[in-house]
Structure formats: C-alpha cells, structure tokens
Amino acid sequence: MSLLELSGIGHAFFGRTVLEGISLAVAPGEIVALVGPSGSGKSTIAHIAAGLEEPRDGQVARRYARHAMVFQDPRLMPWATAAGNIGFPLRLARRPRRDRGASVLAAAARAGLEAEDLGKYPVELSGGMRQRVAIARALVVEPDFVYFDEPFTALDVALKRRMQDLVIEAARGARFAALFITHDLMEAIRISHRILVLDPYGRGIAGERWLPGQPGERDDAETFERRQQFLERDALFAHIDDIDERVRP
C-alpha cells in the first residue's frame, strides 16, 4: 500500500497546460527523488500532492497521518525566534504549550541546532542555519511523509552535503517517506531509493531508475560514477540539464 498516490494529475496556469497525466506512488519509508529540467513543473507536483494547490484533473490519495514540508527558501516568520518557528506546526496542531518545549528541543537537536541558537531571530542566523530551522520545523510534528521542494538549491556545495546527510540521517531515524524535488542529479542519487524523471514539458513521468543500496551507504565514487553513467549513457536523463529560464514554473 503506497502512502501517496497521484493518478492522472493535470494542471494549468492561466490556461497554459503545465502538467498532464502525472501518476506516481510513494511507498512507506521510501524516499523518491523527482528530477527534471527547471520549468518542467516539478514544484507544482509537490504543491498539488501536499494540497497547496488544487489539480485541474486527476486524483491525489494521501494515506499518511501527518505531512510536513521544506521549501526552497526557509520561509521562517521573521518576528518569531528559531524556537517559535520550529514550534509553529505544534501551535497549529493545538499542542499544549508546556509539551511543546521538549518536542522543539528534540527536533532542533536532530537538525543540528544548539540550544543557544533557539532564542535567535531568523535575521540573526546564516542561510544554512535558517534551512536547519526549516528542517527542524518539518521534523517537529513527527511526520510520516515529508515534501522537500528543492530545499538546498540556494546553499553552497559543502553546506548542501551537510544538509543532505542530515535528511538521510533523519529519514533513517524517523522512518518517514519523502518526495524530494530537485534538479541536481548528484543530490537525487545520494538521497533517494528511486529516481523519477519528469518529462521536460510536464507530459507525464518519463521513466524511473531504482538505486541499489540504501541512501547514506553509497560512497562518493559510486555516486559520481552512477551520475556519469546516467548522464552519458542513459537516454532518460538526456534533457535533465536543459534550461529555459523564460518559462515560469
């Protein structure tokens, strides 16, 4: 039984069709990476799956208990401290105030934040720290499904690796399933069990590739080798780095 199932999703912005016939399923505990060139509608799929947008046609079946989301920009509330931001989903879930503190501390620790950072406002934190807060905010509700919408695109290479390790570690510990949107093939190979490739024009899922082994257990040489193999010898990935910056997502 899959936790998330999209069948025949189609969507249009202002009459322009951006997605058509998208079907995919994510099993419990599975991390699925969805890759595709920019402007192919990857983020829109995540937004539809998470219920932020209503699809024009098709069905979304959500069989998980709680989901959380990490966005490309951290989307922290500037007026709340790091602790306030992490605790925000608990406030929405009407968790009593006295229980929140411990949950916030635990989630912060899992995202690599220290107690002294929790009293700071987002303006006082660096970009990487802000994204850590956003990850902690997603983990605090103990979700069994997490949407990642190109979460580390804006971070530099070293920071990106640290954040990916963080997600791999968290997914192993908490056993959540995830839909991970990215256009970075390296990232997809490091982090996921299975890669889905979106058609460059949003006309369905072009294909999928299973990755052997578990995320976090693949070494760098293997990951890089696989990336080269995908890019050079696999027709499925031929359009992955096509960029048309005039097309708005």
Binding site: H47, R75, W79
Partner: peptide
C-alpha cells in the same frame, strides 16, 4: 504580506482563519 509564509502555514495545516491570525496579522 509574504505569500510564501501563507503557503507554509497551509502546508502545516492552517485554515484561512488561522493563516490570518497566526501569520498575516503580524
């Protein structure tokens, strides 16, 4: 107002009223 924050609150399960009281008011 930052519509990204609205979407964030919606993703974490806030309806229109709580999106107003928790996110927009400030």
């Amino acid at each position: 107002r930052d519509r990204g924050l609205d979407a964030m609150a919606k993703a974490f399960g806030a309806g229109p009223v709580r999106r107003f009281t928790h996110v927009a008011v400030r």
